[in-house]
Design a protein around this nucleic acid. Sequence first.
RNA 1: GGGCGGUUAGCUCAGCGGAAGAGCGUCUGGUCUACACCCAGAAGGUCGCAGGUUCAAGUCCUGCACCGCCCACCA
Length: 705
Amino acid sequence: MKLSKTYSPKQVEDKIYRLWQKSGFFNPDKRPAQRKKTYCITIPPPNITGSLHMGHALNTVVQDILIRFKRLQGLRTLWLPGTDHAGIAAQNVVEKELKKEGKTRFDLGREKFIERMWDWKKKYGNIILDQLKKLGASCDWSRKVFTLDKNYSEAVKTAFLHYYKKGWIYRGKRVINWCPRCQTSLSDLELEYKEEKGKLWYIKYPLEQKNKRTKEQKNKYVLVATTRPETMLGDMAVAVNPKDKRYKNLKGKKVILPLVEREIPVVADNLVDPKFGTGAVKVTPAHDFTDYKIAQNHNLTFCQIIDEQGKITEEAPLSYQGLTILRARQKIIEDLKSKKLLEKEEAYKISIPKCYRCSTTVEFIPSQQWFLKMDKLAKMAEKAVRQGKIKFIPKRFEKTYFDWLKNVRDWCISRQIWWGHKIPLKDESDVLDTWFSSALWPFVTLGWPQKNNDLKRFYPTDVLSTGRDIINLWVARMIFSGLEFMKKVPFKDVYVHATVLTREGKRMSKSLGTGVNPLDLIEKYGADATRFGIAWQVMGGQDIKFVEDNIMMGKKFCNKIWNAARFVLLEIESAKTLLLHSSRVLVETKNLNNVDKRILGELNKTIKSVNKHLENFQFGKAAQVLYDFFWHDFCDRYIEETKRVDIGCQQRTQKILLYVLLTSLKLLHPFVPFITEEIYQKLPLKDKKPCLMVETWPNSLHSHL
RNA sequence: GGGCGGUUAGCUCAGCGGAAGAGCGUCUGGUCUACACCCAGAAGGUCGCAGGUUCAAGUCCUGCACCGCCCACCA
């Protein structure tokens, strides 16, 4: 029973984690004596390519606190873990490996390449889950799911065919986002816009001259402003706003598209912003979404001049064919200059769409793809939140969700990569957007489409905890999928956790070396200290500027807990037979002196406060309340008082010491599970549970104190 | 172009209508037996700026500035 003077996490953590795993109590079916009520969180499945960063750490801490809290309260608690196959992201990693060998995926062929993907997955795919264990995550590993498991694939197929039969999935040639490097389409949410310095070029589009002898018409032209002159090769019109008086006379006229020498009409459309540039814009239906709409409004045809490699197609004049976009741009500018058709150029800030997985500039090109109709699904998803069936915490993130749903376009669900779920139709070689399968996560993990026991018991799940960057990418799609396939929302609360930033308030970035590796923190301070320090900083959804000082505070606090326990164990050593039933509330309340009453009263307040804060996702507040009680009320005041106490009172004091310690351990356990478990294992209690993890959460009973 | 969040002690943050708080850091003192990753105590803030509401405002309202994030069809 002798404890070392300082707490050493390394001697405790792995041992305790093994103890938990051996107990089987992460699995709700193995845990004895619990209430019927369930509590379930399906983990946001990390990508198999991922390695733990501070965002994961924060999210893991949050979820594990909730799960352990509810488990102690006696609920049938399931935290279901798993990983995501991460289509493009994972494929890119293996393609990079291949590149080192001087090969591409096309050299291997589809089948071999997918074999290679699975090899990679087997080797590295579970690393991140092992890292979660280091943090103490109490997931039921026996239920672990991977989004390409056989059952999962079946479920995806079922879901696809369900939509297909309903007529909500259709195939069509549309302008889509295309990554020339990944060689695949991307959904709107898979783009990241980056602001760059660009230019705005003003180009003269000469008016068609029917009668060459009319002098007035000579040298007449429409001035058009563009940031992407190369797309002019595919222009099918020039458009102006119908209310724009400057161009009143141009209606019905035609202009000659420079360099191509093609005749194109001037059209009037409300989509044109008269304040931009000259108020007259070029219309390239094949390579711009707005232009595509304008083209539809005026029955214009396409002319695709950029291909899937990002090169100029044969639709363009010969001299430009095969050039890359940048080369084509240069040449076009030169050619325009020499023809004196370039009026001027201005510096201009421009937002460039980049592939969110490889940062290559994305092109807009027409392509044959599969789409999922969004109108009805979006309405369902919106309604569920409006009716309060799902709550966002903090509430303001509802807005992000509603705004997206309001304007959402049909979801392009086909991808031209190989790693993923194949579209389950004959002669289809495309795979589904990785988010199509992720969208089914909360119920497929529980067994859907089979109607098994887990699905019945645990769906709808209770909380989804996630970062704000995937509210639409993932959360919204889970919500409508849940409503469509289960007829019920997939979770009741969406907790949108803080973003962990650097001390300077910037995004943590691996490549810039500004990231903090949680594993380093665990190594340096211990898992409990890391958890407590992180939880301490979780305040009302506010972003966290990470400072390591807080982890140090966590470490000191752990040491304080350790030493308080040492003291209590020393104090009660003399009382050979013990003392407390772990489940019994206390001790008789007579014979208490004021010091006793005070500590028990404070303890009582602390229990109430911790309950309240945890129910409200106020992790930082709960941590601070506990810290304050344990350190100041218990250690600084009560323990110091007991050192002065008369010998006659000892036994009562011993009981209170043990009682307050035990109760504190229970309250602290969700935050610092390892150290509290380790101490619990050493307490002399009469009817000790096998683990603190499955003890009974304290009631706040002694209000009369 | 819209929207959201932030601006409080040297640092990171609580407080959101009634006498300025925590952790870390700093300083002073202490420590024979739980802990120096300790104890007792102290210093340190005209609560971003300017107006307004109120008996009373970090706390509510209006405007502005700076920092950060999100959305958008600025071609």
